[in-house]
Design a protein around this nucleic acid. Structure first.
Length: 429
RNA sequence: GGAGGUGUGGCCGAGCGGUCAAAGGCAACAGACUGUAAAUCUGUCGGGCAAAGCCCUACGGUGGUUCGAAUCCAUCCACCUCCA
C-alpha cells in the first residue's frame, strides 16, 4: 500500500467533486490515513452503472492510501431514502432485502482490497440500527435534529408541498438513520469522511453535524456530481433498461456496447469520472480520437477500461472478439466451431432440434422463436423490408426455410434483425 | 348532496350507425445515408393464415336496439370540472 496522499487535486481535475465540506480534508489526507465511507442501498440484486461512480471513488480512496468502508444499508434499506424521490417508496420485504444484501456485498468485495493494513471494511448498518432502542435514540440522536431545518430540506419540502405526495414519518426519519451511521462508523472505525452522490449532501451534512455535537469532532463530507448525458436523457439506461454490473443481468457484451455507444460529447467526461487513466492521458486520447471520430477510439477506450474493471480481462477479450465478428464484417464462416461458440457466448440463443432443422424450419417461425420478432406477421414484414439476415447474408424471401445447409461449423445459425439484434440458433439432439 | 363532462390502439388525439383494424401526431421497428452517432428521408406499425384475400380480437365493463354499433339506448365502473 502506498503512503497516504492527497488525491483531491486529481479528483477536482476529473470533475469528481460536486460539493465538499469547507474543512481541511486535503490536509488530513496529506497528513495521514483517512477512513471514508459510502453507503449502498440494497434496492436491487445488483449494482448498476449508476453506482459505478461511487464504487470507483472508494477505489480511488484506497489507491491514494486511505481506508474505504463500503456500507450496505441492511437497516436503512428497510426504511427508504426520500432523497431524490417524488413519491413514498414501496417498502422492501425482508427476504428480498436479504438476497439483495448478499449480492451487493459479493459485488463490492470484487472491487476493493480487503487485505492488509489498509484493507477495506464491509459493514451492514443493520448491525447497529437493528439494536437501537427507540427511547435512547430519540433522546441521544433525535435531540440534535431540528424538525424546522429538516422540513426545509429540498427533498422533504417537495414532498410536503405536493398535495398528492406526502411523506411518511418513516421516510422522514431516514436522515437520522444515515446521520447515525456516520457517527457509528466514526466511533467504530475512526471514519472521518463520507462520500456520496450529490443527492446525498443533506444526509452527509446531517451526519457531520451529529458528530460535531456528540463528539466535538470535525469530519468531512464530499459529493460527486450526477452523471449527465449531453442529450439530456437519464444516464445509466439502455434500451433494455438499467445497465447492471451483474453479468447475469447485463452481459459483458451488452455492458461493453453500452459504453461504446456513448455520445462524443460525453466520452471525455466519463473517462475522467469513471476510469483510472491519468487526466493527461485521457486528454491526449480524446484529442487523437477527435481527428477520426468515426473510429470512436475514445469510446473504445472507455468501454474497454470499464469492461475490464467490472468483468475482467478474459471477459473483455471475448467481448472484443464478438464485437469484431458482429460489426467488423462477415467472416462468420471462417471461424471454427470453438471460435463461434466463444464469439456468441453472450448472445441470446435458442435451441432447435437437429431433426427439425433437417426437415426445414420456416424462417418466420424461427424469428419468432428467437424472439427477434413478436409475431409471424411482423417477422414477414421484417424479411420483406430486408432487415433479416441469415449468417450475415440478407434474406428477402418470406418463404425461406432454414435447413441443414445453413448450419455453420458446430451446428449454429446466426439470425440477425437490423444491425444490432442477434440470436444464435444451436442445434441439439 | 346537486349539475355537467370524459373514458378510442404503447402514449396523445380524431371519428359519432355501414365505406373503421379506426385520421393525424408521438413513440417503436426496419431500410437508405452515416461513425454500431445525431439529423434527415422512406417503409412498417393488433393477431393468424395456403395472404392484393379471408378469419379472429379490439374503441372502459355488462346488457340491449339494429340486417349492421367505436358510433344509438340502459346500467355499472373510473376519472375530471363546476355548484353547495
Amino acid at each position: 500500500m502506498t503512503a497516504a496522499q492527497n488525491p483531491l487535486d486529481d479528483w477536482q481535475a476529473r470533475g469528481l467533486i460536486h460539493q465538499a465540506t469547507a474543512t481541511g480534508l486535503g490536509e488530513a489526507m496529506a497528513a495521514g490515513t483517512v477512513t471514508g465511507y459510502i453507503g449502498f442501498d440494497p434496492t436491487a440484486p445488483s449494482l448498476h452503472v449508476g453506482s459505478l461512480l461511487q464504487l470507483t471513488v472508494l477505489m480511488r480512496l484506497q489507491r491514494a492510501g486511505h481506508r474505504p468502508i463500503a456500507l450496505v444499508g441492511g437497516g436503512t434499506g428497510l426504511i427508504g431514502d426520500p432523497s431524490g424521490k417524488d413519491e413514498e417508496r414501496q417498502l422492501l420485504d425482508v427476504e428480498g432485502l436479504a438476497d439483495n444484501l448478499a449480492a451487493l456485498e459479493r459485488q463490492l468485495r470484487g472491487f476493493l482490497d480487503f487485505e492488509g493494513e489498509l484493507g477495506a471494511i464491509m459493514v451492514n448498518n443493520m448491525d447497529w440500527l437493528g439494536e437501537l432502542n427507540l427511547i435512547e435514540f430519540l433522546r441521544d440522536v433525535g435531540k440534535h435534529f431540528s424538525v424546522n431545518s429538516m422540513i426545509a430540506r429540498e427533498s422533504v419540502k417537495r414532498r410536503l408541498e405536493g398535495r398528492d405526495h406526502g411523506i411518511s414519518y418513516t421516510e422522514f426519519s431516514y436522515a437520522l438513520m444515515q446521520a447515525y451511521d456516520f457517527l457509528e462508523l466514526h466511533d467504530r472505525h475512526g471514519c472521518t469522511l463520507q462520500l456520496g452522490g450529490s443527492d446525498q449532501w443533506g444526509n452527509i451534512v446531517a451526519g457531520a453535524d451529529l458528530i460535531r455535537r456528540e463528539r466535538s469532532a470535525e469530519v468531512h463530507g464530499l459529493t460527486t456530481p450526477l452523471i449527465s448525458r449531453s442529450d439530456g436523457r437519464k444516464f445509466g439506461k439502455s434500451e433494455q433498461g438499467n445497465v447492471w454490473l451483474d453479468p447475469e443481468q447485463t452481459t459483458p457484451f451488452e455492458f461493453f456496447q453500452f459504453w461504446l455507444n456513448t455520445a462524443d460529447d460525453d466520452v471525455a467526461g466519463y473517462l475522467k469520472l469513471l476510469t483510472f487513466l491519468e487526466v493527461a492521458e485521457i486528454d491526449q486520447a480524446v484529442g487523437d480520437a477527435a481527428k477520426r471520430p468515426e473510429a470512436r477510439q475514445a469510446q473504445r477506450l472507455l468501454a474497454a477500461e470499464l469492461t475490464r474493471m467490472v468483468h475482467g480481462d478474459q471477459a473483455l477479450a471475448r467481448v472484443e472478439q464478438v464485437t469484431k465478428v458482429l460489426f467488423g464484417g462477415g467472416e462468420l464462416r471462417q471461424l471454427d466451431s470453438a471460435g463461434l461458440r466463444e464469439a456468441f457466448r453472450t448472445s441470446p440463443r435458442i435451441r432447435i432440434d437437429r431433426v427439425e432443422i433437417s426437415t426445414g424450419v420456416a424462417l418466420t417461425e424461427a424469428l419468432v422463436r428467437a424472439s427477434l420478432a413478436p409475431s409471424k406477421g411482423r417477422a414477414r414484414r421484417d424479411v420483406e423490408s430486408g432487415a433479416i439476415s441469415i449468417n450475415h447474408e440478407v434474406e428477402g424471401d418470406v418463404h425461406r426455410e432454414l435447413g441443414t445447409g445453413d448450419l455453420l461449423p458446430g451446428g449454429f445459425i446466426v439470425l440477425r434483425r437490423g444491425r444490432k439484434t442477434y440470436c444464435l440458433i444451436e442445434t441439439a439432439g
